[in-house]
Design a protein around this nucleic acid. Structure first.
Ligand SMILES: [Zn+2]
Ligand SMILES: [Zn+2]
Lengths: 274, 274
DNA sequence: GGAGTCTAGACACTC
DNA sequence: GAGTGTCTAGACTCC
């Protein structure tokens, strides 16, 4: 009999794989190595197909993507220790890889992803399986927020500089809080750098299989965040010479989960020759 | 400080590594990808250097090779489950890789290697460490021996065909026995296919850390082998219609496993004791 | 059992 | 310590 992958139902001839391949969204940066990226993403699809072959999840995935069905089932793969997945020679976070491939071609990092409430295995939960259903993640467009770090000089010299300062570096982190506080009073927020502690963002969502309504979690956290911010606001300004408010940053990682986070960014660039 | 391998004592600048690199013997088949092989063997040297960095073995190795010192110490690396070592993208048996590199450029397989008696960690012992000191292995030049498998027709038709038949396939296996029986009566040997059960050949050497003199083991086996062969000689010829004497071949793999005593049990043909 | 491919985990390096 | 790139043993596949 023919081998399973060379001539079998999972090789290129497989219609589901073929459809998944054609559903890929081309990346914006065509100026680079599009050829190589294309080849790589094809491998990524086949690698995924191989993992999903036992389950019926491959069909679920294809249907979810082609029908844009947010209410599709989870499509899970095993989670590695550091959360990264390797395909060919590149490593990256699985949900980022597949969300970029099928939904958000210009996705930069996992900080821009937020899982939908009904996803049972979002990356952020750090379970033994990770859902890579692109329809189970939403993209958080980074709002232009003030920078996290504010030099004391700048802060004391004028308020206007604070509200206009912005860095790409921590955009992702702030973006979640940014959304969270979007409806709140802006002046208080200018120094608010507390990061991704939202409900179903990629990196958080600590409580395992919690059945609590997400909106409730969100609400609860919002309150906590506000209280915290308020206290910090009155604490930092007076005497803190440190440019970076440590309190916020540590809270960022500790809050909402026990294990030191292993959130990672995007993809590792292609290798030389190996 | 600079990293250990980029600028440190183990990078190219390392004089010992440099000398080891220049001691490599060029392979014969320059017609092929010599450039690539050269690059690869350089990686293999550096990989080895890295493994040996903690111990003083790197210097031992360099001295052994440059002085051709057969009585040098063992130079060990950890043994993997299947015995193979991977460097860059290639896999191979470690002692073969390094013997080919520094002593026998045209070495084809581990069947052509025999460890010296005083080597404590020869590949064949399957300990947790493997000696890759090229001076601890000798190359067995394959003598032109009759093929292991002798079609019944050929065997019955004439004796001359048996003594001239030879295949490259099992040359390695037979070579050891070939040496072993080199001084014995050739006619009896024509059908002798009993495999690598020699003392310090690469693949055998079952008795762990046996302190028995190799010559003794050798002698003992020779006698047994002769007995065996004789009995087989009279057993197989008469009625066996099978082209391949199964007894010999299975013995090849099973033999020499546990205790020295069982070697011969393995050697004895399944057919003989029924 | 031999030989090649793939990748999680280990490790190295950067900031 | 987060993030990212590299290397390879073990797993797997095909003979
Ligand atoms: Zn899901
Ligand atoms: Zn040795």
């Amino acid at each position: 009999m023919a081998s399973l992958f060379v001539n079998g139902p999972l090789s290129p001839p497989n219609p589901v794989v073929k459809r998944l391949l054609s559903l890929r969204k081309p990346t914006r940066n065509d100026q680079n190595s599009n050829e190589k990226d294309d080849r790589w993403s094809e491998k990524a699809v086949k690698s995924l197909a191989k993992k999903l072959k036992k389950t019926r999840m491959l069909d679920v995935l294809e249907k979810a993507i082609s029908t844009q069905d947010v209410h599709s089932e989870c499509v899970n793969i095993p989670r590695s220790l550091d959360g990264r997945l390797q395909v060919s020679q590149r490593k990256g976070l699985p949900h980022v890889i597949y969300c970029r491939m099928w939904r958000f071609p210009d996705l930069q990092s996992h900080h821009q992803l937020k899982s939908v409430p009904h996803c049972k295995y979002p990356f952020s939960r750090k379970l033994d399986q990770v859902c890579v259903n692109p329809l189970h993640y939403e993209k958080i467009e980074a709002p232009t927020l003030p920078a996290i770090m504010v030099p004391k000089l700048a802060a004391s010299s004028g308020g206007s500089s604070l509200s206009t300062t912005s860095t790409d570096l921590n955009m992702g982190l702030r973006s979640v809080m940014g959304e969270m506080f979007e409806s709140m009073a802006p002046p208080t927020m200018d120094l608010a750098a507390s990061p991704d502690s939202n409900g179903n963002d990629d990196d958080d969502q600590l409580s395992p299989i919690s059945t609590t309504r997400l909106s409730d979690q969100f609400e609860e956290r919002r309150h906590t965040g506000v209280d915290y911010l308020t206290s910090v606001d009155s604490t930092i300004f007076p005497g803190n010479t440190e440019a970076s408010p440590q309190g916020y940053l540590s809270e960022d990682t500790d809050m909402e989960q026990q294990s030191p986070g292993t959130d990672f960014a995007a993809l590792s660039p292609p290798l030389s020759n190996r």
